[in-house]
Amino acid sequence: MSTEGRILGIGPTDNTSDQRTPRERLRLIPAAARESFVPVVPARFRASPHEWDMTRTAPDRPRAQGVPIEVTGTVRTQSGAPVRHALLEVWSANHFGRYRHIEDQSGLELDDNHLGMGRVFTDADGAYRFWAISPGAYLARPDIGRWRPKHIHLSVSGGASRLITQMYFPDEPNNAADPMAILMGDAFSRNVGKPRDVGGADVEEAYDFDIVVGGRNATFFE
């Protein structure tokens, strides 16, 4: 049991992190208020049945450019309980490092067969699966030549579990200098997908990425 809240780290070479990271030590939640800090996400989110396959914009469309991959894993709490029927919102850049987002002004190439956004749900065992295009790295700080390594954004909402994270790829040259990876230190390896055999899947690479939702919120109603 901690007696002090954390001081949040500021990502080195990350201007936005410098502008937006609280400087004061986080306050501890008084015990009498603890339960009120545990949001329960209503089971009201929806997904289209084809959204698990982000290598295409729709089932009748050709594959996007780049390397199709499969990502599978489970979502669990720290006590090991599966987070069932949770929503995973997934988004990533295309093969060229460009997001199909109105605020991405990088000028990198768009691919008409790539949306880069999809939603899937975990099953009764907390397991999930999706296909995506292996995302390109992109130059985040042209002035100092600092790249964002390849990554897939994942948002988990289910019951009292709430997590936004990223899956990184093993042995990428840009991993070491990434501000978020630096803040994670040795724990960065938890956020790296583990390569595995593709099995029978119609993809070129496959990764396991097991997600553990930390903190007391996730286990409050177990």
Binding site: R76, I164, Q166, G214
Partner: peptide, 14 residues
Amino acid sequence: LPATNEDTCGPYFP
């Protein structure tokens, strides 16, 4: 179990 690290949502949350 060791928790997956939280990470930034980045600028392009869809």
